[in-house]
Amino acid sequence: MQITVTVNGVTYTHDVEPRLLLVHYLRDVLNLTGTHIGCDTSQCGACTILLNGKAVKSCTVFAVQADGAEITTIEGLARDGQLHPVQEGFWEKHGLQCGYCTPGMIMTAVDFLQRNPNPTEEEIRHAIEGNLCRCTGYQNIVRAIQYAAEKMRSGS
């Protein structure tokens, strides 16, 4: 089946198998390997991307379902060499160790802060429940998101 998608501002048209998962399309067809795969049951969230502005797990979407969609992956988050405040927060607050869950975690946080620009710690912990991290114990991820929230509020 033919699909047309815009990923990080670039429009692509490809023939894909109907059963091809969006995450495999991004990684294997577009070579955007920043979107990771950590499980096969949609639990870990490593594959989270923005699909029409909303965070989704790209292992749970078929590529054909993304036909006509606007997608942002971790590679497209920084603009003009400027890190997104969430990326900056993860760096500043040591929100990552091995970095494997990080792209998905960041994409989830970006979506969340759009909806809730001034979250409490509890709200942050709840918001990232669909993203698993095995290294950090989440404490510095929470701080990273708090940093980003503050920065985005003061910037707007």
């Binding site: 920084a78 890190l83 990080t102 792209p103 960041i106």
Partner: peptide, 21 residues
């Protein structure tokens, strides 16, 4: 000091095994 590993990992440019083509 902030980690020098991070710029590649927060921008999706890590070099994990499954990324090698």
């Amino acid at each position: 000091i902030k980690r020098r590993e991070d710029p590649r990992l927060i921008t999706g440019r890590g070099n994990f095994t499954d990324h090698i083509r």
